[in-house]
Computed example of a mutant assay.
Amino acid sequence: MSKNIVVFLVQSTKGGSKKRLCEAVRRMSKEKKCYIIASSSDFPLDIRNNENIELVNTPDQNAFTNTLAFTLLSTIKLLKIIYKYGSSIEWVGSFSANAGFSIALLSPFIDTKIFCVRRGANLRRLKIRLREDMNRNALSHIKGLLKIFIHKLISKAIFASSDLLISQTESGIRQLENEYDDWLPSRRAVLRNNVDATWIVRRRNCAVNDPIKLRCDVFNVCYVGRMQLLVKGVDSLLNAAEKLKKDDICFHLVGDGKDMKKIHDHILSKSLKNSVNLYGWMDNPLKIMVESDLLVVPSRVDPCPNVVLEAFAVGTPVIGSNTGGIKAMLHYDDLLFNPGSPKEISKMIRDIATDREVYDDISSKCVDLKDKHCFDWGGNLTKVFREYKYHTGIYKPIDI
């Protein structure tokens, strides 16, 4: 019997994992039947209407986005698919950190290849959050330690049961090797995210046609991401903004998160209201980004920020932290600063804002990086599945 079915699992349908999964099934559904097990049916219309794609969602309730509950329900759903199709299934895999736990539980009974897509750095983010919890109370600290323990346990089970590990950057693979080397599958591949992904193109077109107009008499700097002071480096960006508040530079912060109130209070206490605009969550932040002169990605930990690709797509230059996936994506030293360094960030922004030659240089470098990130992501994932077993070390269908 021919193997013509691929099963994908993703827990959250709100982030980048779902978007990458959609790119995969758009391509693979041309040749194979694809099943998606997710915590919600919230997928684009072209995915829902594709006859070769079947959505198998667990109950769409907040309670079921919990990892253990999703694992229980997705295990049942996956078991039904395995029982029905058996040896026709070619691959079963997960697109988010915890979604693969149900696959790990069933792996002794699955006669098919198993893959997992991981960005890396999840454990590092949890450890930074644990440092934040130490400043609150003992109970929060204990919960943080327990979360790290459970995360490591689940990750080890997923890696041990997998035949193939896929990450978006080589640094993501290296981070996972540092934490889990003895548990990782021997076959590993790097598949970068692409700038011409369907969801980025749709957002870009909408933003270009209906941008949010910004002031023309200042240099506009944009941040897009979760509002987290330490992990996302928003504290460093705010401190840089304080150093630049007398310059003709305006900051635009787009996103939401647990530190939103602290950030709002900081803006007021440091008298930054005239130079820092806090927008909160936006359905399409590219409407701000397309009008901005510069995007800053100040994260201390970020394995593969899609916001960099979004900036490339709308033609906005980017600078970011010299760490992890940001370093891999931006490549050039003069687009990078040390994470957690407001002094470096403020100097770079001032130089870019006041020196046209510097601005044109970083813009040119970003255009070059954009061109390198244009490729068929789903097609290259298909290539990874087809070619992975013939390669040792880290397989790269596209080496940027």
Rank of each mutant, 00 (worst) to 15 (best):
K396I: 01
E90Y: 02
R131K: 14
R300D: 07
I154A: 05
F115C: 14
K245V: 13
N57C: 15
R202P: 06
T65K: 14
L72A: 11
N49I: 08
S39C: 09
M134H: 11
P303L: 06
L272S: 08
V224E: 02
D283H: 10
K156G: 13
V307N: 06
E344H: 08
K32N: 12
T13W: 08
S2I: 15
C22H: 03
Y332K: 12
R356G: 11
N4C: 10
L295M: 13
I394W: 05
V254L: 06
V308P: 03
E310T: 09
K156S: 12
I37G: 00
I400M: 14
D256M: 04
V301P: 04
N220P: 11
L146K: 14
I148V: 14
N284W: 03
V56P: 03
L244Q: 06
F115A: 08
K14W: 13
L123A: 11
I154E: 01
G16A: 06
V201E: 12
P303C: 10
V307L: 01
A197E: 02
L73V: 09
A38C: 10
N277M: 13
L153I: 08
K347M: 12
S269V: 11
F219I: 08
M329W: 02
K77H: 10
D334C: 08
R118P: 04
G325A: 08
G257M: 06
A157Y: 06
G280Q: 07
N220H: 05
L381C: 09
N239V: 00
L268M: 06
L253F: 13
I400S: 09
D355A: 10
T58Y: 03
E344S: 11
S107I: 05
V218I: 13
D360F: 04
T75E: 10
S299T: 15
R215C: 13
A99Y: 05
R48W: 04
I349R: 06
I128L: 15
N322M: 12
I249H: 01
P339H: 04
V254M: 00
D133K: 15
K261S: 13
S102L: 01
P339F: 07
I103R: 01
F70A: 01
V218M: 09
P59F: 04
I173E: 00
R192Y: 14
L78Q: 04
G144T: 09
S39V: 05
N338Q: 14
E177G: 01
I128F: 10
G15C: 08
K270H: 14
L278S: 03
F149D: 03
I400Y: 10
T67V: 15
E170Y: 01
M348E: 07
G93S: 12
S161L: 07
T75H: 05
F149H: 10
K287Y: 03
I5S: 03
N194F: 05
K370H: 11
Y390A: 02
I148A: 12
R26H: 07
R226G: 15
N239W: 01
T67S: 15
F219R: 03
Y395I: 06
T392S: 13
L237R: 02
K370N: 08
A311Q: 03
S40I: 02
S321Y: 06
E242H: 10
N49R: 11
S346K: 02
A63S: 15
D355V: 13
S341V: 09
